[in-house]
Simulated assay, not measured.
Amino acid sequence: MDRFLAISPKSQWWLFHTALALNVLGMLLTDMWLPMVVGAIVTTYLSVDSTVRIRYILPMKKSVQELERENASLRRRLNEIEQVSSY
């Protein structure tokens, strides 16, 4: 997931989808089928990967971080209650 840290996930999405469109256009306009098919397969994988990352993984990471923060605050409150009740 952390392969391309130089650009944002949304910029990666645009880059990979543009590359896929250019590959398909190159397949239509040239006779270089084998390199274009390989390029189209690679850019299709990258496009799908970036779409999954933007739509599912990044929101899931945010919700997991929120749950971890909530869990930590609840544990602190529980420890405070235990300390008060032990007196």
Rank of each mutant, 00 (worst) to 15 (best):
1 M>C: 06
1 M>D: 14
2 D>R: 08
2 D>K: 13
2 D>N: 08
2 D>T: 11
3 R>I: 11
3 R>N: 13
3 R>Y: 13
3 R>L: 14
4 F>L: 11
4 F>M: 09
4 F>I: 12
4 F>K: 07
5 L>H: 08
7 I>K: 10
7 I>T: 12
7 I>E: 09
8 S>E: 13
9 P>N: 03
11 S>W: 10
11 S>K: 14
12 Q>F: 06
12 Q>T: 07
12 Q>W: 03
13 W>E: 04
14 W>L: 15
16 F>W: 13
17 H>E: 08
17 H>M: 09
18 T>P: 00
19 A>L: 15
19 A>N: 05
20 L>E: 03
20 L>I: 02
20 L>Q: 00
22 L>I: 07
22 L>K: 00
22 L>Y: 04
23 N>S: 14
23 N>G: 10
24 V>P: 01
24 V>Y: 06
24 V>C: 07
26 G>N: 11
26 G>I: 02
26 G>W: 05
26 G>S: 10
27 M>H: 04
27 M>F: 14
28 L>H: 05
30 T>R: 01
30 T>V: 01
30 T>S: 13
30 T>D: 00
31 D>H: 08
31 D>R: 08
32 M>E: 09
34 L>H: 04
34 L>Y: 03
35 P>G: 00
36 M>K: 03
36 M>G: 11
36 M>N: 12
37 V>A: 14
37 V>H: 02
38 V>H: 05
39 G>D: 03
39 G>E: 00
41 I>A: 15
42 V>C: 07
42 V>G: 06
42 V>E: 00
42 V>H: 02
43 T>W: 02
44 T>K: 00
44 T>F: 05
45 Y>E: 04
45 Y>Q: 04
46 L>G: 00
47 S>K: 03
47 S>N: 03
50 S>G: 04
51 T>N: 01
51 T>W: 07
51 T>V: 02
52 V>G: 03
52 V>L: 12
52 V>N: 01
52 V>I: 15
52 V>T: 01
53 R>D: 06
53 R>K: 13
53 R>A: 08
55 R>G: 04
55 R>T: 01
55 R>E: 09
56 Y>K: 11
56 Y>N: 08
57 I>R: 10
57 I>N: 06
57 I>L: 15
58 L>F: 08
58 L>I: 15
59 P>S: 06
59 P>M: 03
61 K>N: 12
61 K>H: 11
62 K>R: 15
62 K>G: 05
62 K>T: 15
62 K>E: 15
64 V>R: 12
64 V>K: 08
64 V>F: 12
64 V>N: 08
66 E>S: 12
67 L>C: 12
68 E>I: 10
69 R>M: 05
69 R>Y: 04
69 R>E: 14
69 R>N: 14
70 E>S: 15
70 E>A: 14
70 E>H: 13
71 N>K: 13
71 N>T: 10
71 N>Y: 07
71 N>S: 13
72 A>P: 00
72 A>N: 11
73 S>Q: 12
73 S>E: 15
74 L>K: 01
74 L>Y: 01
75 R>K: 12
75 R>T: 05
76 R>T: 06
77 R>Q: 05
78 L>H: 11
78 L>M: 09
79 N>C: 08
79 N>E: 12
79 N>W: 11
79 N>L: 06
80 E>G: 00
82 E>H: 11
83 Q>V: 06
83 Q>A: 05
84 V>D: 14
84 V>L: 14
84 V>M: 09
85 S>L: 13
85 S>F: 13
86 S>H: 12
86 S>Y: 09
87 Y>T: 09
